[in-house]
Design a protein around this nucleic acid. Structure first.
Length: 879
RNA sequence: GGGCGGUUAGCUCAGUUGGUUAGAGCACUUCCCUUACAAGGAAGGGGUCCGGGGUUCGAGUCCCUGACCGCCCA
């Protein structure tokens, strides 16, 4: 090809679209089953949540994974690099409900070809009650909506140049994933790791679903300490009544009070243990017991136990065998209860019911406001006329548990839920974590600490719709009662299924909901129950045994650090419980992108930077350069300047390549000392860059390559060899220089290829593709010793650094004299210390040619300050 | 309250097992259109490596301690 016909500038956008098409056409990123003896490298790509938009943080972390994929591919491994979409779950549900104005009713049957009113229709009434549809219809709508998102995500990934094999695509709600999740359930059920129980569970009252420990976060919110007087039961009439004061932030749970406790060593309350207290207003007798868990410093030191205010209440309720008086319903409103009935004792049921009737049906906030008013009134029955509220509520700020996606504090509500038993498996899970390499290493602690502190088994059932259903039914007795203790689980061959549409083995559809028939479980799995299977889904677990054997365990799991406790943890759980193996050998944790003020990017903060305009303005390679500049685990503030630097590097590569390939002449053997020394240094660079990439330190590889390319190659070696390439120093010196330049260019292109896939393939296509027979640089071999001819060492390797110093020294002289680099030098003299002098002499001719001097002398100066080279005399050709 | 990470130039960040005078880019100043490159090049100024102690011949680097920032967990 005629390099002189190449465009003046590199058109990034045109190159990006043409190379994407070319890569597809060549199948460069297609995973091929490894030949015998050939290594494979399997990546458990994080499936992005599709019901949102991508920001530069995603671009950042996905690029870091792609670097590794490209590096390993060039090293000759068969790279398995799939892409999944995480589309099930709450965010999508919410969008579908609003967009189509529907609600899911899992009790309804599927209606094929369901017609929905068009929200754009003028007759459409948005205030009308939402249409109820079956779960399968609802899922179809979710799929319709997520399909669009997936298209735009895919376009962005393509643009960014992710070397994903797009034939290996999945989404977490597709039949394959649903089948895998249900198969996982069956396997764990058979192995006895899953149990279902009716117990107090963390519950979000808005979403009306159970949540797992991993989805819970503490938030500091304002509240009030309410000081309430309780009476001790049995104070003799006429004597001074024995009263104590508890402090609580949740007075509305007073009707659910089932006990009172204080620290066993607390002298103030020791005399009360074993007696019973009477709750104010409701007059409920409850036991007073000692507990180490009560903090004498907190509040008044004595507190009420309710069903259920928090996790400690649950514990006390269990350990002390307390009554269960659940007053909060699943919707977060107070249930109707009747005092005086069994389990609801009261010394004055009539009054208790009167007071409670005001609270019944109210939500927590409303009930709290009302009960505080009730507590201000004198309480004759229990407190002989004193008001239960001892003093005005005192504002405090305290940590409260929230569902990470929710807006209301979590409640503990007694419901039937499925759990995976984990608490007995901590040692095994810790040991598994130790067998995995974590990058950076300190991220191992996050996993370890989470696993050690795990307090609950994994609650896997969710009372939601856009998810994978439990493949479970319950028999109905002749009397019409569902038998939840004896679930019927599906057979593996029938997966995936929705128990609302399919009948269990041995039953027919006509028996649904009838005596001696069956009823379907309505719950779906926690989304992590499916996502925790990604390495198994992608590698064909349970479906393609041969493929599974070669791909599992995978080599690499890339992910971010805030989901170590969920995604990484649950994936390790699943791999251990199903296969008794770790899911991958390496975990690479990418950092977060912070906004320029070092705040985490989030929609709610409104500081999200989207990537498309950056790709348009700077080009994919520049964006990737920015992403590759940060090491794993390092949070980085977004800085548009780094993109500019990347763009400059791309331009420099483009121009330097044009220079090298534009030289005419016949390449010959490397006989010239400076060429040999330069190649030796380049060979060191290859070794270092390779080592850094092997160690998951891509930023080091890039930084060293870039630095050497800029200072040693374009700024110096090219200048030193320029004259020789034109043949002025004879054919042998020219041939040696041309060969060196060609080797260097080919090596540089390949060292940069994982980072800058577009510009490197563009340049590669000019001549290297034909010369090597590799149509794409990304299918070529990573540079190695094999790229270099025999380069015997002769002890003169120092001439390169000396030459560099001499060039800098002369540049300084030029600048000091205010002389253009275009002006030639008539004569100059360089001074070196005796130990450096022979090297300077040896490099003198190369320096002279580089700076275009008529005459260049080297002198020895034992008394020279410092170690460098100094210009002793310089005379420029007159302008 | 516990754990982990961080604090290096105005900004964004490197700095590997301790080892010359602590680096890069951006920004700033000055100069230069030079046959690969003005989408460029050359040069320059700019540092109490968060504070305090310690180990060492020698500490940005190791140890102790304090402050601040971030994250995770209670």
């Amino acid at each position: 090809m005629n390099v002189s016909e190449l465009p003046k500038h590199f058109d990034t956008q045109a190159a990006e679209s043409s190379w994407q098409a070319r890569w597809r056409e060549l199948g460069v990123y297609r995973y091929a089953e490894a030949a015998p003896g050939q290594e494979r490298f399997a990546i458990d790509t994080p499936p992005p949540t599709v019901s949102g938009s991508l920001h530069v943080g995603h671009v950042f972390s996905y690029t870091q994974t792609d670097l590794i994929a490209r590096f390993e591919r060039m090293r000759g491994k068969r790279v398995f690099y799939p892409m999944g979409w995480d589309d099930n779950g709450l965010p999508t549900e919410r969008r579908v409900q609003n967009y189509f104005h529907v609600r899911c009713n899992p009790g309804l049957k599927y209606e094929s070809g369901l017609q929905l009113p068009d929200p754009a229709d003028p007759n459409f009434d948005p205030k009308s009650p939402p249409q109820e549809i079956s779960r399968r219809n609802f899922i179809e709508l979710c799929l319709r909506l997520t399909e669009e998102d997936e298209k735009s995500f895919k376009a962005l990934w393509g643009r960014l140049g992710l070397s994903v094999d797009w034939t290996q695509e999945y989404s977490t709600i597709d039949p394959r994933c649903r089948r895998a999740a249900q198969r996982s359930f069956l396997d764990l059920w058979r192995k006895g790791h899953i149990y279902s129980v009716e117990a107090p569970t963390m519950w979000d009252v808005d979403f009306q679903t159970a949540v797992a420990q991993a989805e819970v976060e503490d938030r500091k919110i304002g509240g009030h300490f309410h000081h309430l007087r309780f009476a001790v039961e049995g104070s003799p009439i006429g004597s001074k009544i024995d009263i104590f004061t508890i402090a609580t932030t949740r007075p509305e749970l007073l009707p659910a009070c089932v006990g009172v406790t204080a620290h066993p060593d607390d002298a103030r309350f020791r005399h009360l243990f074993g007696k019973r207290a009477l709750t104010p207003l409701f007059g409920v007798p409850v036991p007073i017991f000692p507990s180490d868990l009560a903090d004498p410093e907190k509040g008044t030191g004595i507190l009420m136990v309710c069903t259920f205010g928090d996790a400690t209440d649950v514990r006390w309720w269990r350990e002390q065998n307390l009554a269960n008086r659940q007053i909060l319903g699943r919707n977060g409103r107070l249930l109707a209860v009747e005092f005086g009935q069994p389990n609801w004792p009261s010394v004055d049921p009539q009054r208790a019911n009167l007071l409670y009737s005001e609270l019944s049906g109210k939500n927590v906030k409303q009930a709290r406001r009302l009960i505080v008013e009730q507590l201000r009134a004198p309480d004759e029955a229990v407190l002989r006329g004193q008001a239960p509220l001892e003093r005005e509520p005192a504002p405090i700020e305290h940590p409260v548990k929230f569902f990470e996606k929710g807006d209301q504090p979590l409640e503990f509500i007694t419901t039937k839920q499925f759990f995976v038993r984990l608490l007995d498996k901590k040692p095994m899970l810790l040991e598994a974590g130790d067998r995995i390499q974590w990058h950076p290493e300190f991220m191992r602690h996050r996993y370890r600490v989470w696993t050690e502190n795990l307090a609950f088994d994994w609650a896997i059932s969710r009372q939601r719709y856009f998810g994978v259903p439990f493949p479970v039914w319950y028999p109905i007795s002749a009397a019409g009662e569902a038998d939840y203790a004896n679930p019927i689980v599906a057979e593996e061959e029938s997966l995936p299924l929705d128990p609302a549409d399919a009948a269990p083995p041995g039953f027919n559809e006509g028996q649904r909901g009838k005596p001696n028939g069956f009823v379907a479980e309505a719950d779906v799995f926690d989304t992590w129950f499916t996502s925790s299977l990604t390495p198994m889904i992608a590698s064909g677990w349970g479906e393609q045994p041969d493929r599974f054997r070669t791909l599992f365990p995978m080599d690499l799991r890339p992910q971010s650090h805030e989901i170590i406790r969920t995604w990484a943890f649950y994936t390790i759980v699943k791999a251990c419980l199903h296969e008794d193996r770790i899911p991958w050998k390496n975990v690479a944790i990418s950092g977060w992108i912070l906004d320029p003020d070092r705040k985490k990017m989030s929609k709610s903060r409104g500081n999200v930077i989207t990537p498309m305009h950056l790709l348009d303005e700077y080009g994919s390679d520049a964006v990737r350069y920015w992403a590759a500049g940060a090491g794993l685990g390092a949070d980085t503030a977004f800085d548009v300047n780094v993109l500019k630097v990347g763009k400059r590097l791309v331009t420099k590569l483009f121009n330097a390549s044009k220079f090298v390939l534009g030289k005419e002449g016949v390449p010959g053997p490397i006989v010239y000392p400076m060429d040999r020394v330069f190649l030796l240094r380049l060979r060191d660079l290859v070794r270092n860059a390779t080592r850094h990439l092997e160690n998951y330190e891509h930023q080091q590889a890039l930084a060293e390559t870039e630095r050497f390319f800029w200072t040693a190659f374009t700024d110096s070696y090219i200048e030193m060899s320029r004259a020789r390439t034109q043949g002025t120093q004879g054919a042998e010196a020219q041939g040696s220089a041309l060969t060196t330049l060609r080797i260097a260019l080919s090596v540089f292109l390949r060292l940069f290829a994982p980072f800058l896939p577009y510009i490197t393939d563009e340049v590669w296509s000019w001549t290297c593709a034909e010369e090597t027979g590799c149509a794409s640089i990304h299918a070529s071999a990573w540079p190695s010793e094999a790229d270099f001819p025999e380069l015997p060492a002769d002890g003169n390797e120092g001439i390169f650094d000396i030459a560099l110093e001499a060039l800098y020294a002369i540049n300084r002289s030029r600048t000091a004299a205010g002389v253009s680099t275009a002006r030639e030098i008539k004569t100059a003299t360089l001074a070196a210390k005796p130990d450096a002098f022979p090297l300077l002499q040896a490099a003198c001719e190369d320096i002279r040619l580089a700076v275009r001097a008529g005459e260049l002398l080297a002198v020895e100066e034992p008394q020279l300050d410092g170690a460098g080279i100094e210009v002793r005399q310089i005379e420029f050709v007159s302008a």
